[in-house]
Design a protein around this nucleic acid. Structure first.
Lengths: 218, 218
DNA sequence: ATCCGGCTCCGCCGTGCGGGGGAGAGCGCC
DNA sequence: GGCGCTCTCCCCCGCACGGCGGAGCCGGAT
């Protein structure tokens, strides 16, 4: 699976969308395949275009970027990596986004090279992306969302995805079908989730997911 | 089980506590067996005195009346009926309290006779208490919390209690032990909860409880 | 070249859970 | 007194779930 990295840009400000598009389109190996101006639109566009990476604004009208991220990660069999784009360095919503399963985040004032680098990195890596300045920023804000952060950090991508699907009330078989893997695989992931979260059954795991803010009501 | 109706009063304002106490103590067949000034204190006092009725202020320092209500209902085998006391007619927290399992609510400006009547009614009845003015008030506010209200309304007291314990991740056996009944009984209640909530297993029921606001994170 | 972690599966086995019934006791209501 | 609801508890049955151990594959790190 090579070919260009397919990117979808979701931001309600036209200027930002345009800026991201020109920077990325100018880069060989990266292709912007879609744009969205709301969270709901982002979900449907992602569903259509099936990109590798989504650049998602946190603050958007209607469904915000966090809920959009949740929906994308929960409903797609092979979800793209979501990078949250924010204006403010100390945006508390960033931590919500991370809990929601975002792969990383990026400041809007980042240089073009940083943006490109971030997209490439996140497209091939399965690990969380922590751009320089933000990494220790997260560390400093840790006390507030420490539980949830430690939580998600310990879960692998697949495990987090399985937990999100568990929190929709699905059985192992249904999760397997939706993720396009065998039931045995799902069982393995579920077992890993239970072990890492210190819970004894799926119900407790889901409760923990709610209590920690890993998933959120409504 | 006759004898006087045992009441605990929880309110951070001394004047309110005193007023409630003198009114109720003057009445034969009603006995105020404890007072609390915070939510946390309310929980411990209720645990000690095991009253039939708790008059609970919504707004208190620390743990508020709603969380205190939740904790009382979830942790006691035979929980008392909780009546929420509020100053304002259109206090939105009242609906939270109802969702939390409060048996009814009362305005602080209610007449002494209304108060006594309410305590007697709630002490012997298992149905929700809707004092005159508040009943249609609830109807008018229905759209906002309609889902949750309709939800709890359809559940019997025992069923609601079981659901709350389910939402703490307990097994049927543990719920049975805590409630002081047999496991078979719990199974019956769980089955009723699943049927009434339209869910197929305990995990889905717990999710529904969170999504509807019947139980709340933190 | 080796190791490690993540993802993908395979068995086996015990059991908690949920579905399907039924049944008796208490109680408020008409 | 009879009706209906709630709460209590019983049976049997099938299955999804969770615990256990094992295995192969891959990519990144050392």
């Amino acid at each position: 699976m090579s070919g260009p990295i397919r990117v979808v840009v979701a931001d309600d400000e036209r200027m930002v969308r345009t800026a991201l598009r020109v920077i990325l389109d100018a880069e060989s190996g990266i292709e912007v395949v879609g744009e969205a101006t709301t969270g709901a639109e982002a979900v449907s566009v992602v569903r259509e275009r099936l990109p590798d990476v989504v650049l998602m604004d946190v603050r958007m009208p209607g469904i915000d970027g966090i809920r959009a991220t949740e929906q994308i990660l929960a409903t797609l069999a092979a979800p793209p990596r979501v990078v949250v784009v924010t204006t403010f360095e100390n945006d508390s919503h960033v931590y919500d986004a991370l809990r929601a399963g975002a792969a990383g985040f990026l400041l809007k004032r980042a240089a073009a090279e940083e943006l490109i680098q971030a997209v490439r990195l996140v497209a091939r890596s399965d690990s969380l992306l922590f751009p320089a300045q933000i990494r220790d920023l997260a560390a400093r804000h840790a006390p507030a969302g420490a539980t949830a952060r430690a939580w998600t950090a310990r879960l692998t991508g697949r495990e987090a995805q399985v937990l999100r699907l568990m929190a929709t009330g699905r059985t192992n078989a249904e999760i397997a079908e939706r993720m396009g893997v065998g039931p045995a695989t799902v069982k393995t992931h579920v077992a890993a989730v239970l072990a890492k979260t210190g819970t004894r059954d799926r119900t407790q795991a889901v409760i923990a997911a709610y209590e920690s803010g890993f998933v959120r009501p409504r």
